[in-house]
């Protein structure tokens, strides 16, 4: 199979994220280097810096704000590219620090119910598979509910992950009512005294009102059994997504009260810079990032490492 899988040695999370991000931030960091050897921070340079931030999906508003901060401190002064990158990285880390929170499973909830939602193809099922393996390895009893009853073979996909992790997967035939499945899964998981129940859902675009209603119904139905469930509602964001992420968070949060984000596919050339803008706008916790296809490639989100990776710094 892939070269990556043949490689037995596992790199640390920081190396993985950094190698992912730095390959990707080559352009950003390289761009900054190209702008400076050592020169005066003037309006034109600031504009170019702002552009480079935009090219990492930070969005026009956040990029403008970061550059304005830099200008405030360093305008008309001699600066090196290293200084500029450090300054941006520190600023970005400061924005991300408050949202970098790992997902905590509350032992008092039996089970702790985690609902996973997101648009199509963002990586929900894969993320659930990785979470299940990690929690299982921590000695928790994990149950999965194959709530994507729409997409062809989505159930089978989760079942394979269930087998790999050695955890039970509750499933019904394709086309079943996902809310009913969620309800039954919850009662089964409660009976079994599971620590965690993770409910998968079908991918849905946030502008499809009827599908968003269906998602809200799943939450309603769960609450009938356990009023404070789901204890966590995760929105899985594709790391390649652009400014549409704002709409995704806005609408999903409104419909199902999203409690945290997981950002996937950061091992590619995407920069995931939109996370910075999201942190500013919504202040939702970012629980984890996906940096590869292996189970341990789902890693806690670390603000400083992410910010420095984005800026191509060690």
């Amino acid at each position: 199979m892939s070269a990556e899988q043949q490689e037995p040695e596992r790199r640390g999370w920081f190396q993985r994220l950094k190698s992912g991000l730095s390959r990707t931030s080559d352009k950003l960091a390289g761009g900054i280097t190209a702008l400076f050897t050592k020169r005066k921070l003037d309006t034109k340079t600031l504009q170019q810096l702002e552009d480079l931030l935009i090219a990492s999906d930070l969005g026009v508003a956040t990029a403008a704000k970061l550059t304005a901060n830099l200008a405030h401190e360093k305008f008309d002064k001699e600066v090196t590219d290293e200084e500029v990158r450090e300054a941006f990285a520190a600023d970005i880390a400061r924005i991300l620090e408050p949202v970098a929170r790992t997902l905590k499973i509350d032992g008092a909830n039996r089970p702790h119910v985690v609902l996973v939602c997101g648009v199509n193809g963002s990586g929900k099922t894969t993320t659930i598979g990785k979470l299940a393996q990690q929690w299982k390895a921590e000695g928790k009893t994990v149950w999965l509910a194959a709530g994507d009853t729409f997409r062809a073979a989505a159930i089978e996909q989760l079942q394979v992950w269930g087998e790999r992790a050695g955890v039970p997967v509750i499933a019904r035939p394709q086309g079943s009512d996902p809310a009913a499945l969620a309800f039954d899964s919850l009662s089964q998981a409660r009976e079994a005294g599971a620590d965690v129940l993770v409910i998968d859902t079908a991918g849905r675009l946030q502008n499809r009102a009827e599908l968003m209603d269906e998602l809200a119904k799943i939450v309603r139905v769960i609450k009938k059994q356990v009023p404070d469930a789901p204890h966590d509602c995760l929105l899985v964001l594709d790391g390649t997504v652009g400014q549409n992420a704002h709409n995704q968070v806005k609408v999903f949060r409104k419909m199902v009260n999203v409690s945290g984000l997981i950002v996937t596919k950061l091992d590619g050339s995407a920069r995931g810079g939109v996370v910075v803008a999201l942190a500013e706008d919504f202040a939702l916790p970012v629980h984890a990032v996906g940096v590869g296809e292996q189970p341990d490639d789902l890693r806690p989100f670390e603000a400083r490492a992410f910010a420095r990776g984005l800026m191509g710094l060690e």
Binding site: A55, S56, D57, D238, V241, G242, Q243, S269, A270
Partner: peptide, 15 residues
């Protein structure tokens, strides 16, 4: 490719 892709679209497509 996903229509929601951000700035990465250009890198991915070029590669």
């Amino acid at each position: 490719a996903d229509a929601m892709t951000g700035q990465d679209a250009v890198t991915t497509a070029r590669n």
